[in-house]
Structures are given as structure tokens and as C-alpha cells.
Design a protein around this nucleic acid. Sequence first.
DNA 1: TTCGTACGTTGTATATTGTACAACGTACGA
DNA 2: TCGTACGTTGTACAATATACAACGTACGAA
Lengths: 248, 248
Amino acid sequence: MTAATETPKPNLLELLWRAAPEAGRGPRKKLTVDEVVAAAIGLADAEGLEAVTVRRLAQELGKAPMTLYTYVPGKNELVALMLDTLFERMERTAPHGSWRERLAAVARDNYALYRVHPWAAAASPSRPPLGPGQCAKYEHELRALEGLGLGDVEMDDALTYLLAFVRTAAQDAAQSEAERAASGMDDQEWWEANGPLLAKVLDTERFPTAVRVGQAAGEAHDAAYNAEHAFEFGLARTLDGLAALIER
Amino acid sequence: MTAATETPKPNLLELLWRAAPEAGRGPRKKLTVDEVVAAAIGLADAEGLEAVTVRRLAQELGKAPMTLYTYVPGKNELVALMLDTLFERMERTAPHGSWRERLAAVARDNYALYRVHPWAAAASPSRPPLGPGQCAKYEHELRALEGLGLGDVEMDDALTYLLAFVRTAAQDAAQSEAERAASGMDDQEWWEANGPLLAKVLDTERFPTAVRVGQAAGEAHDAAYNAEHAFEFGLARTLDGLAALIER
DNA sequence: TTCGTACGTTGTATATTGTACAACGTACGA
DNA sequence: TCGTACGTTGTACAATATACAACGTACGAA
């Protein structure tokens, strides 16, 4: 019952800021948190986040699975670290031009990040933990909104709104790709398989507008859902929406 | 090698439209797909989607786990059915007023759905499978966009954009609540635990804007992240953004 | 220099998950 | 009436995160 020998789990924040008290006695660590996180990111990039299991990652690093728990308290914390590392590394276009150009650049930087690391869109929460990467990102992105006459709270609201749009757009794009890949059917095969039933069931009496618009949308985009188009359309709308706030 | 006795797995679309050919011989089924789906929805509402396991759901229905696979080919299909059922049942405010009021009503109906069934926001893809519920929903929502001078493709784009916003807002709200509940810390406890480190690490030299704006935002909302505020702010922006398209 | 102990490493083990497979029995159609 | 298609279910398996304890390393005090 002696509480003296308790080794408290490192906090997520301490981990993010690499503020863990370094060990004294015992064997030297043969890895670093950064190496573990980098390996996890590489694995996720190559094979998706679902391939990042403790076993697999350990194997990739030439260690036993349980070893990783010395570096990271659990898998959730690992993912948080992966994300913050991405945020730290990501491209930050130097701000210039009108506020609209500056915000568009912020949006495109984020979208590019998520397109290169599709797993990140799904993993990233609306309010990421305050790691160094996230803070640097927040600082940079807020600067695109300075000097526009917005209050501090409005600046945060506007940025959160913009980033949520981008994250969702990227998430939808990645998911749509993943579904296509998983089904193993291209569009034509899908229609051959499901067309007859749909034709029977989608009568224009019950769903006149839906059938008309759905068909038009389907034909306009080469796939059933064209992610890039949705992003461009949404970005324009989002900036228009912010214009109503900024230029009021 | 006789292919005559193959019982092909029922297609997801067939399942959604309840178009499966009813069985002839053999014992009578003691449940229906709808009962299974309804039980799953109830379970998810009460204890979250992660509580909906095959074993648990079977127990709830007084059956052996594997029995469920007679009604549903797998868990993915079950979730799709749960969602479509929600869409079928959901409130659809009768359209009236300006286009802005009509679209706001669509957004609020969706938001209300996701707030009552928080698991649905996370589970629902950007393009849900074309079940009867989804079709009825699509038809109803498109009508709020008719007669505004938009092309068919633009109508679909605009609706997709609006719905993605609502889904994300609801998702973020649910996630923020879940995290709060999971951590078991209220805001004060969190600050007591993490404040000292943050104070050390967030120096105003590196992150001047971030610290200033972050503090203002944190104080403005009673919690670190106020979901309802984000929804109202975002809805206004989203409608403003669509206004630029509609009233051009 | 020595030696106790804190701590890194790892093998084993457990509780959960989705679902494949085969046995069993029911009730329809010939 | 009876064969067989199909609903039901027990058992089984692979994969997950991670708890626990054994083992050995190397630091810090003697």
C-alpha cells in the first residue's frame, strides 16, 4: 500500500509537449516517442489507420508489442500524437492578398494535408488537443483573420467553421474512395447489379424531384459523388458565408 | 460443385427496400428485419453505437448471436438499415416561408435528429445508400430548393453542402459531450490538472494571436467548446453562403 | 567498486469483437 | 408422406487492446 513507488501514467499534454520527466535508472530506451509516432504515420499513410495496430507497429519497429506502451500510454494517445505531428509538419502558405485569398490558402493547405493523409481527416476531432503542432497551426491560421474588424471570439468561430468544412470535405472524399475500393465494383458494375431494382423502386410518382435531380447530379459528375467538385463548391459557399460576416 | 444450392447473400439495396424473396420451406422466422433494426436503434440510443454488438443485440432479442445473420448479412448492413429507418421516421417540417426559412427548417430537422440519436451523426456517410428513408428525405429536402432558379445539379450541390454542415456540427457536439463524459473531469478539474503545464508552454511570444484568441473564445463559451453556439454561427454562415448563389 | 532497485523489455494471458461452419430440427412442396 | 431447404444455435477462430508478472539492465548510493 506504499504509494511511493507509483509511476503515474504520463499525461497526454505532457506527451504532446515532450515534457515527460526523463528516466534515471534502468536500461536505456532504444526508441523515442518521435520514432514510434513517425513509424505509425508511415504505416497509416501506406495502409490506412486500421493497419496501425499495436502488434503491427511493434513488428515494424522490431520490438515486442507491449514495448510500445513504454512510449505511449495507449492507442488513443498515439493517434493524438500522430495528428499533432502532422500539424507541426504541414505546409503553411505565407499569407498574402485579400482576406479571401488568405482564407482560401488556409483551406487548401488543410485539404492538401488531409488528401495526403486520408486517415487524418477521420481521426481528427473538431477541437484537437493543444499540442505544439496544433498551436502553431492555430496561430498561423488565425493571422489570416486579423485586421478584418472581427472580435476575438468571431475570429475563432470563423476559423473553426472553415476548418470543419475542410475536414468534412476531405473525410467524405476519403470515405467515398474507400468505399469504391472496398466494394471492388466500378460504377458500371454497380449499376448493372443495382439498376434493375432501383428502376422498379424509384418511381417518379413518389419521388419526382429526387429522381430528376439525382439523375442530373449523377450524370454531371463522372462518379456518383465527385469529391473535388464538392470541395470547390463548398469552399466558394463557405467564403461567401464568411464574407457576409466580414464585409458587413 | 453444383451451383444450384447456393443461397446468395441478400444485397444491401434489396434489404433496404425489403425486396428479399420470402422464404418457402423451413421453420418460420420468429423475428422481422424491422424488429431487429428497431432493437438495434433502441440500444444505440440508450447506450451508444458501441453497445450494439451482435451478442448484445441478440441477447436483447432473446436469440442466439448467430441468429441475427439470418436477418442481416453483417453489421455494416445493420447500421445502414438503422440509419435509413431513422431517415424514414424523422420529422419533416412542412415547407413554408422564404427559401432561407425553408432551408433553416431542413437544417434544424436534421440537427434535431442527430441530437436525439447522436450515434447517427458519426455513422452516417455523406452519401447514404438509396434506401426508402433516404429517398423520402432527399425528396422532401430538395423541395425546399425548388423554384429558386437553381439548376438541378446546383440544387444537389447546395443540399449536400447544407447537410454536410449539419452532420459535422452534430458530430462535433456529440464527440465533445462524449469526451467530457469519458474523461470524467469537469472544466475546472481539467484546468487544475493541465493549467500549469499549459501556462509554461504557451508563451505569448511564440503564439501571441493563438493565446489571445483562445482565451477569449474559452471565456465566451461556458465550456471549452460550445456546440450549440457553433451550430447557430455555422448555420447563419451557411445560409449566407447559399444566398450568394441563390440571390445572385 | 559494489549492489539494490527503478525501469525498459517482453511472453503470456484475458476479455471483446465479428463472423465462419456444421449440427440440428422444422415445416413446405412434391 | 417424406426429402430437403432453411431457420436456429453451439462451437470455434482470428484479431483487437492491454493487464500482469518475469527478467535483466544500468544508474546512484554505499
